[in-house]
């Protein structure tokens, strides 16, 4: 129990970020028209691809000889990139169609 309390104490900034981000996330898309549900979901999908940063950090810290970790890390980087790049490109393609009439 004390360990958890200490941990909370040590990460209090992060906990604040989390709490505020939750409300921000809800606020920010609160009034989205249903037309944009799909592109918005797709855009949000690309944003959580930020997990790739974790993959990069983990990969960069693996000792060069540890092949199992290297391969898993490599896979993580590839999948993360797919999520980010694919996500943004698909969203852009959807939104391309919403362009204003000439």
């Amino acid at each position: 129990m004390e360990a958890v309390l200490n941990w909370i104490q040590a990460h209090i900034e992060i906990i604040y970020i989390v709490l505020l981000s939750i409300f921000l996330g809800i606020e920010v898309i609160g009034r989205v028209p249903s037309v944009l549900h799909t592109p918005l979901m797709s855009g949000a999908n690309a944003i959580h691809g930020v997990v790739i940063i974790g993959a990069i950090i983990v990969m960069g810290k693996v000792e060069p000889g540890n092949y199992i970790a290297l391969v898993i890390g490599f896979l993580a980087v590839v999948l993360g990139t797919l999520n980010v790049v694919g996500g943004f490109v698909v969203t852009d393609r959807m939104l391309e169609m919403f362009k204003k009439k000439k």
Binding site: S21, G25, V28, V32, H48, V50, V51, I53, G54
Partner: peptide, 27 residues
């Protein structure tokens, strides 16, 4: 993704992950 943010004390993963977590739930 936000869990990764916790793990590495990484603010951008945290905000990105939680934002999507919250916005996605609302959506």
């Amino acid at each position: 993704a936000a869990c990764g943010g916790f793990l590495y004390d990484n603010q951008v993963m945290l905000t990105g992950g939680i934002l999507v977590g919250a916005a996605g739930t609302l959506l």
